[in-house]
């Protein structure tokens, strides 16, 4: 995703990446980054929490329009309102993705 942002930015369209992995977006040299400490699949927050979603989007628009230099990162100061263990389980698919399944099978056959 950060590299997609770079290609679009290089074509002349300003971008901001809202991401739960801002350190990775920095490593990948995304031009503008908003970090959120939210589970995967939930970049803009909790379902039906309009206040939280609007807060994330507002910050993204401020960084999009206001950042002065490439590599700007601003993290959102909001804690995920679900206990970590529960949230960690909830974002993951019921079945492992094909690549994870393949990796698990490879590990099993190596042991």
């Amino acid at each position: 995703m950060p590299v997609l942002a770079r290609w679009i930015e290089a074509a002349g369209i300003p971008t901001v990446v809202v991401t739960m992995m801002p350190a990775v977006a920095e490593e990948r040299r995304a031009p503008r980054i908003v970090g959120v400490e939210f589970p995967f699949g939930h970049a803009f927050g909790m379902p039906r929490d309009r206040v939280m979603q609007r807060r994330v989007l507002t910050l993204a628009l401020e960084v999009l329009a206001g950042a002065a230099v490439s590599g700007t990162r601003v993290d959102l100061d909001v804690e995920w309102p679900v206990p970590l263990r529960e949230a960690y389980r909830a974002w993951q698919p019921e079945e492992p993705s094909p690549i994870v399944r393949k990796m698990l099978e490879a590990r099993r056959s190596a042991s």
Partner: peptide
């Protein structure tokens, strides 16, 4: 990029 230009986008918010 072509789509965004046709749409007249001045900026893009991407979210993985």
């Amino acid at each position: 990029v072509t789509h965004l230009r046709e749409q007249g986008a001045d900026g893009l918010v991407l979210a993985p």
